[in-house]
Design a protein around this nucleic acid. Structure first.
Ligand SMILES: [Zn+2]
Ligand SMILES: [Zn+2]
Ligand SMILES: [Zn+2]
Ligand SMILES: [Zn+2]
Lengths: 153, 153
DNA sequence: ACCAGGAATGTAACGATATAACAGCCCCAA
DNA sequence: TTGGGGCTGTTATATCGTTACATTCCTGGT
């Protein structure tokens, strides 16, 4: 996430939390910023290292911040990677899908209505009521597909 | 999985492995049977307890069997639960979807072509080549939706 | 039958991810 | 001012998964 987008996201986060009466404390804001600055999904313990930064901090510090940010929809958790990414459009609640490149590790967040529709149709046939769809697709991104070969294998 | 289906699955597993030159050893067959007998997704350490059954066994024993069974498509892993279920139709390779009831824990395996189609379309728009789609839907199953209330909350 | 050599298993230790439980702090509201 | 709820600190522990290396088993070539 570039600097400009990051600033926008942080401002949106503050506005959203204010509107909702949720407290985006410095600790939480710090974790949000770290997640968003990471070019790739980032793990909780990796975050912990950065939060410590010489000082002291324990897992609950980071996990509690992550829980808050997840509740507010400011970040997403990638179940297949046990890692987190910042949401680029937290302004509205959404159920999104993730394209995860197994080669370069980059993740693209989609919000595909047709895909969600298919999912709801399929669930409905079984009388099932979806509450939290988890859709994560491991594959190869366009950039990596164009690479002629793995350069440094 | 009922006894009849279990027996069919075990026979299919033997046939498949034989055809592929893969060795469905007693250990692996045992783990497959334990996974299939479980009414719900079962975790690796839970399996380990049952594999031990008084004797001795260590995590790699179970994880290696699980790896083999996953490779052969005889079981599936549920990423959101860190648990495993037996595949009810291992005769052909497939990418399936899972409906996970948050109330009773039951899991339904789907193989919905339309849903997969939507997924591929959505991915294609981003130039992304899917290799392993992970689709797990947390929600409420038909049975649990009909319950008037949580009986013992 | 014999003997590699690879596949499968046993065993001990460790690493990574996540939560429980309880204590102290801060801020606002009654 | 005095709770009380929300946030944070701290320690320990639970849960999930892997590494590394020794041993055993099976198989295929001779
Ligand atoms: Zn998002
Ligand atoms: Zn890539
Ligand atoms: Zn299946
Ligand atoms: Zn249910």
């Amino acid at each position: 996430m570039n600097e400009q987008l990051l600033n926008r996201v942080l401002r949106q986060a503050e506005a959203l939390c204010a509107r909702r009466g949720a407290r985006l404390t410095p600790q939480r804001r710090r974790v949000l910023e770290l997640v968003c600055r990471a070019e790739r999904p980032i793990g909780a313990y990796e975050l912990l290292d950065q939060v410590r930064d010489g000082g002291k901090a324990a897992p609950p510090t980071v996990y509690r911040a992550l829980d808050f940010l997840l509740e507010q929809g400011l970040i997403h958790k990638l179940e297949t990677l046990h890692a987190f990414i910042g949401c680029t459009h937290p302004d509205h609640p959404h159920s999104s899908q993730f394209l995860i490149c197994a080669d370069c590790g980059k993740v693209t967040e989609l919000e595909d209505a047709a895909l969600l529709g298919s999912l709801h149709s399929a669930a409905a046939e079984s009388g099932f009521s979806p509450q939290r769809p988890v859709i994560e697709v491991i594959g190869t991104c366009a950039r990596c597909a164009h690479k002629p070969d793995r350069p440094a294998d």
